[in-house]
């Protein structure tokens, strides 16, 4: 061993100060202030504010950190301390579309590992990187609360369920070609930056797109309907069931 300390989180712990570019303008600052005003104590708005910074600058920019600190009356160290704690905040610009492949245990076992390797090979990039054209960035995801649709891929934090190598290829092709793509349980894809704006707390009017639920979410309900099962009628309750002890 060379004896030098090597971080196992090479992408964490710092904000990229080598890139000082920023598109934050007076409108952004007004919106950041609006977010701060929504909470009983303004600092609570910091997470949403950083989402908004990302929607404008494509990453957590040095300028974004200064502006947030200024509005909230806290130090830039306090802001960057928060920005580097959470994985959704990016230190380098994400792609137009941000793709995540879940590889936590269940998705990994059911094929997520295969899908991630496939995506890397197809895009020619590694995890945490963006294609040279800037169109797609790729990330290894942790459990995204859609295990009944495993293996799961997310694009701009929209669900793509029950993915296979073929459907993953098709999805990536469409993203690289800038084709219109709709999530099976969500809206037509916009962009990662547009998604960040919604997460900051500025709705985009797309809530009514997509279905009420996917097939897996409805499985129990459809079986209940087939069998005419349901919760008891409150006006005609069944006799209490025998307990385990009574048997």
């Amino acid at each position: 061993m060379s004896g030098h300390f090597e971080s196992h989180f090479p992408d964490s712990g710092h904000v990229d100060y080598s890139d000082q570019s920023s598109s934050i303008d007076a409108t952004t600052i007004a919106e950041l202030k609006e977010l701060a005003g929504r909470y009983p104590q303004s600092r609570s708005a910091l997470l949403p504010m950083l989402h908004l910074v990302q929607s404008v600058d494509g990453r957590v920019s040095p300028r974004g950190i200064e502006v947030c600190a200024d509005i909230l009356g806290i130090s830039t160290a306090q802001v960057s301390g928060v920005a580097t704690f959470y994985t959704m905040y990016k230190r380098r610009p994400a792609g137009t579309h941000h793709v995540g492949v879940c590889t936590t245990a269940l998705c990994a076992v059911m094929g997520g590992d295969i899908l991630l390797e496939r995506a890397k090979a197809k895009l020619g990039i590694d995890e945490g990187q963006t294609t040279p054209c800037g169109r797609v960035s790729l990330e290894r995801l942790e459990c995204n609360a859609a295990c009944d649709y495993a293996p799961v891929v997310m694009v701009n934090w929209e669900f793509f369920d029950n993915m296979s190598p073929e459907t993953t290829d098709e999805l990536l092709d469409a993203l690289m070609n800038d084709d219109e793509v709709a999530s099976p349980r969500g809206a037509t894809l916009t962009s990662w930056r547009a998604a960040e704006r919604v997460l900051a707390g500025f709705p985009d009017g797309r809530a009514d797109e997509g279905p009420s639920a996917g097939h897996a979410s409805l499985l129990g309900l459809s079986i209940a309907r087939e069998n005419n099962w349901g919760a008891p009628d409150p006006d005609n309750l069944p006799a209490p069931a025998e307990t385990q002890e009574a048997k």
Binding site: A213, L221, N227, W229, A231
Partner: peptide, 16 residues
């Protein structure tokens, strides 16, 4: 005895 499945919170998930 109650039914095996008792959709309450999920009882309307399949409507438009």
């Amino acid at each position: 005895m109650t039914d095996l499945l008792t959709p309450v919170m999920s009882s309307d998930w399949d409507s438009d």
